[in-house]
Amino acid sequence: SMDRSHLCQSLIKWLNTFNVTVKNQTVEDFSDGIAVAQVLRQIAPDYFNEAWFKKLKVEDDLNWRLKVSNLKKVLNGILEYNMEVLGIQIQGFQMPDVNLIGEHYDSVETSRLLQLVLGCAVNCAEKESHIHNILKMEESVQQMIMNAIQELMSKE
């Protein structure tokens, strides 16, 4: 099985290739769902639109309950986008525990969330540009990303 702490670092490096207006370097930076939501907006702007984004609380120093509330909305959005737009039903994949992400900045659970974002990117209408961006990354990161995609594909 995958080294998920290592995977988390590789996926954060990949997410750093997107433009976001919030901090996006550490696992903690991903604990309120906002950086992920901004990336999703770039991946599928018609689906993850302004109205969807406005359901999230965007403030510095959110308490952990509000972070978890954001993360639940982000996770549900990802799963609905997979079903409704991509026609992908993910089965048998261990879903991220958003409580552990929001309260404890857990890198294993964060890796599961970021892995689902990766799945959106490489299956969306603009997947070609996302895949080309992945191919510009260092080989060790590409390797981790490949493993993560392969695991997801085995659960579709």
């Binding site: 409704e84 895949i131 992945i134």
Partner: peptide, 30 residues
């Protein structure tokens, strides 16, 4: 630990994988 891909092969393997991903058809609304 000896369980990874053999050295020297990984670049081709990565290219193969991502090329196959590019040609994969997805999208319920496509």
């Amino acid at each position: 630990d000896g369980k990874g891909a053999p050295p020297g092969n990984s670049e081709g393997m990565l290219a193969n994988f991502f090329n196959s991903l590019l040609s994969k058809k997805t999208g319920a609304a496509a």
